[in-house]
């Protein structure tokens, strides 16, 4: 710990008990590490040259080319079908589960229920992927059951549940139980209390949870790649197929679109979920 030059700024830092030298620099380095590659990727999607890494000029052609691509459209349609269904199912299941595991006395088996719900977060994705693949292939070969794209919807719903559950539970824990008691005192039925009091107050948590569920499903690569059957190409799988050939900025343009969607939903979820009371 060397003494710093005795400027006014350093003097201010010296009296701040929370100051640690060099920490700002490290934080800045981390931020640059996290964002530099993304900015390069996004920047190169405006590159006029067909060779992705040498810059020749600004163009929007690659975006036009990307959205005119039929394969990109069908992949986008698949992705939206899967993500929206998985979001709806997982958010409903997670909301019910959050209502069951918060407020009121902890019950026998609540710990086990909580463990089960957070299981998809603890098992490495590649294991979930091969296990789901084995499960559906067994269903198909022994019972002749194949849900088609439903296979992917089920797989996505399972790993989306904990992501939807977390913000909803956090919101419920922050909520004031006395409002429910007040409603009961005023002769509201439990059902009316739920619809008129609990649900409206819980809504920001549910929306934040749904946004997170959507984004993890929308971005999933590993599980989808192993479980997807023919004709079930999603956007990440389509991009993966593209990058195995020489890269063109068209891929960058597609990636940029996907990144923007992620950024939007994350910011949206943070904004909605972050507003307390």
């Amino acid at each position: 710990m060397r003494a710093r030059p005795a400027t006014a700024r350093a003097g201010q830092k010296a009296t701040d008990v929370r100051y640690q030298p060099g920490f700002f620099t490290v934080a800045l380095v981390c931020l640059i590490v996290l964002y530099a590659p993304i900015f390069v990727l996004v920047g190169l999607s405006f590159n006029a040259n067909t060779v992705v890494t040498s810059w020749t000029g600004f163009t929007l052609d690659w975006f036009a080319k990307a959205v005119q691509n039929d394969d990109f459209y069908s992949a986008a349609a698949n992705t939206l079908t899967i993500s929206l269904s998985a979001t709806v199912f997982s958010t409903m299941l997670a909301t019910a589960a959050a209502l069951g595991t918060t407020r009121g006395q902890p019950w026998r088996g609540q710990g086990a229920a909580y463990m089960t719900i957070s299981l998809p977060l603890m098992v490495p994705e590649i294991i979930t992927a091969v296990a789901t693949l084995a499960f559906f292939s067994l269903l198909a070969s022994v019972f002749g059951i194949n849900f088609g794209i439903g296979n992917l919807i089920i797989a996505h719903t399972v790993f989306c549940i904990p992501f939807a559950y977390m913000p909803i539970r956090a919101r419920l824990e922050d909520m004031d139980l006395t409002l429910d008691y007040a409603a009961a005192d005023l002769y509201a039925t439990p059902w009316a209390t739920f619809w008129r009091i609990t649900l409206p107050l819980l809504l920001p948590g549910i929306i934040a949870g749904a946004a997170l569920a959507f984004i993890v499903s929308f971005d999933d690569f590993t599980i989808t790649q192993l479980v997807a059957g023919p004709g079930q190409t999603t956007l990440p799988i389509y991009i993966w197929a593209k990058i195995r050939r020489p890269l063109t900025p068209e891929v960058n343009a597609m990636c940029t679109v996907l990144l923007m969607i992620s950024v939007f939903f994350v910011s949206f979820s943070a904004f909605i979920g972050g507003r307390r009371r």
Partner: peptide, 18 residues
Amino acid sequence: VTIPFWSNLLIRTLAIML
């Protein structure tokens, strides 16, 4: 810090590759 946490891993890895 949260935005990269939720962003597409495949795309972020592709960005490193570039």
